[in-house]
Amino acid sequence: MKTYRVVRLTFACYLLIAWTWGFSGSAWADSYDIYLLAGQSNMDGRGQVSELTLSQRRPLSNAIIYYRNPPRSSDGWKPLAPGFSIPPKYKGGFPSPTFGPEIGFANAILQAAPHQKIALIKGSKGGTSLRVDWNPGESGKPETQGECYRNFCETIRLATEDLKRQNHDFHIQGLLWHQGEADKNSNPETYQERFHVLVDRIKKEVGVDDLPVVVGEVFDNGKRDKVRTALQAIGNSGPPFGFVSSQGTKTWDEGTHFDAASQLLLGQRYADAVLRLKK
Rank of each mutant, 00 (worst) to 15 (best):
Lys203Pro: 00
His196Tyr: 13
Gln192Asp: 08
Val213Ala: 14
Val197Ser: 03
Ser186Tyr: 11
Glu181Gly: 08
His196Ile: 03
Glu193Asp: 12
Glu181Ser: 12
Asp183Ser: 03
Arg201Glu: 09
Thr190Arg: 07
Tyr191Cys: 10
Ala182Leu: 12
Glu205Trp: 04
Leu211Tyr: 12
Leu211Lys: 11
Glu193Gly: 09
Gly207Met: 08
Arg194Ser: 10
Thr190Phe: 11
Gly207Ala: 08
Val208His: 01
Val206Asp: 00
Leu211Cys: 14
Val208Lys: 03
Val213Ile: 15
Leu211Thr: 11
Asn187Phe: 12
Asp200Tyr: 09
His196Ala: 10
Asp210Lys: 07
Val197Thr: 15
Glu193Tyr: 04
Glu205Leu: 11
Val213Tyr: 10
Val206Phe: 06
Phe195Asn: 01
Val197Tyr: 04
Lys204Gly: 07
Ala182Val: 06
Asp210Val: 05
Pro212Ser: 00
Val199Lys: 07
Ser186Phe: 08
Gln192Lys: 15
Lys204Trp: 04
Lys203Val: 00
Phe195Ser: 02
Val206Cys: 07
Leu198Glu: 01
Lys203Leu: 01
Arg194Asp: 12
Val213Arg: 15
Asp183Gln: 03
Lys204Ile: 04
His196Lys: 14
His196Met: 10
Tyr191Arg: 07
Asp183Cys: 04
Val213Glu: 02
Glu189Leu: 09
Lys184Thr: 03
Ile202Trp: 15
Arg201Asp: 05
Glu193Gln: 06
Asp183Val: 14
Pro212Ile: 01
His196Gly: 05
Leu211Arg: 13
Ser186Thr: 14
Pro212Asn: 00
Asn187Glu: 13
Pro212Gln: 00
Glu193Pro: 06
Pro188Gln: 03
Lys203Glu: 00
Pro188Glu: 01
Asn185Thr: 03
Glu181Thr: 14
Val206Gln: 02
Arg194Lys: 08
Glu189Met: 08
Val206Gly: 02
Arg201Cys: 07
Pro212Asp: 00
Asn187Thr: 13
Val199Phe: 04
Asn185Val: 03
His196Trp: 14
Lys203Asp: 00
Glu181Ile: 10
Leu211Asn: 07
Lys184Trp: 11
Tyr191Ser: 13
Val208Thr: 02
Ser186Leu: 15
Val213Phe: 15
Leu198Gln: 04
Leu198Met: 08
Gln192Phe: 12
Thr190Glu: 10
Ile202Asp: 01
Asp209Gln: 09
Lys203Asn: 00
Asp183Met: 04
Asp210Tyr: 09
Ala182Met: 10
Tyr191Thr: 09
Glu181Gln: 06
Lys204Arg: 08
Gln192Pro: 07
Glu205Thr: 11
Tyr191Gly: 08
Glu189Pro: 10
Val199Ala: 05
Lys203Tyr: 00
Leu198Pro: 06
Thr190Lys: 07
Val213Pro: 14
Lys184Asp: 00
Val206Thr: 04
Val197Asn: 05
Phe195Lys: 02
Phe195Asp: 00
Val208Pro: 00
Ile202Glu: 01
Asp210Gly: 02
Val208Arg: 03
Asp183Ile: 14
Pro188Gly: 02
Lys184Gln: 12
Lys204Ser: 10
Pro212Thr: 00
Val206Met: 11
Asn185Tyr: 12
